[in-house]
Amino acid sequence: MLTFTIRRLFMAIPTLLFISLIIFLILDLAPSDPTASLPLTIPPEVRAEIRASLGLDEPIHIRFLLWLQQFFVNEPLNLFEQWTGWTIGDGDRTRVISWQTRSPVVDIIAQRMPQTLWVVGTAYVVGILIALPIGIYSAYRQYSIFDQAGTFITMVGFSVPPFFSGVLVIVIFAVQLGWFPSVYDTTHVVVDWDSFVVQLKQMILPVMVLALQITSQISRFMRASMLDNLNQDYVRTARAKGLTETVVVMVHVLRNSMIPVVTVIALGVPQVFGGAIITEQVFKVNGLGHLLIGAIQGGDIPTVQTLTFIFAVLIVLFNLIADVLYGILDPRIRYD
């Protein structure tokens, strides 16, 4: 398993380079433009000059190599300098600069990370923690009232898109009842109990909306997979051996049912870092999802490229983690 992991990690480098090239080509082909959001009163000659000042008139391979250098050499060196306080070389190297804000992309990403992790990350954890018991119990008591109600709620929950459920909870809890704020304050700092309560209050609505989607999806896969395994021969054997029901279900069946669930959870983690575009927009959380959609609409190629590349790294990494976990869950799975 260790050699497999190491081999895969090495494989990941050419894979990621290839992915970054494809992303760059797509972004370059896409018809968005950094000057699109400017008022029409700005004349075309000025727009052309703005594009030139962004380096857009360079040929594509130069721009791609420049991005590679900025991202893989300059940014890590810069980070290293910041951590250690040393200066390497002349210390003056161009970083990946966003076209919209004209500031280093990596700094903005670092600035957006806290609210994304607070909101989307919490929602993900909450969603998983609710989904697993629901899925297990629904399968164990298939067609019970609990199962039927769970099916109904999760299917409706998945069918209702966040652009609607978000507004619905705002109208109910922010406008009518006035319990929670409808606008997320990203500058809020948690220092004591009271400010933590404020933070909780502003997180509740977006977390609720997101967790509903996540719960629905994961609990369906959990339930289906449990059902498959509950009828297997080894379950009968285990019961015949006199194991308690809890041990049979929670150890034997659950462990064998986790493979699809682990897949789904691993696929979802990069999306946590990708933020939740619509939910972030509805609640004005302004996390990474908001950054990404804004950059896409603004034709800000360096930001989109950097963000998508980071997601790509996470995707490759978490799919690898899922593969390793398969082997732990079911030792018969071998990769070499």
């Binding site: 968005s32 699109a36 609409q297």
Partner: peptide, 13 residues
């Protein structure tokens, strides 16, 4: 058409 494309002025679009 999406505003970022419509007002984008990309000669390829």
């Amino acid at each position: 058409i999406d505003a970022s494309v419509f007002f984008g002025g990309d000669p390829a679009s």
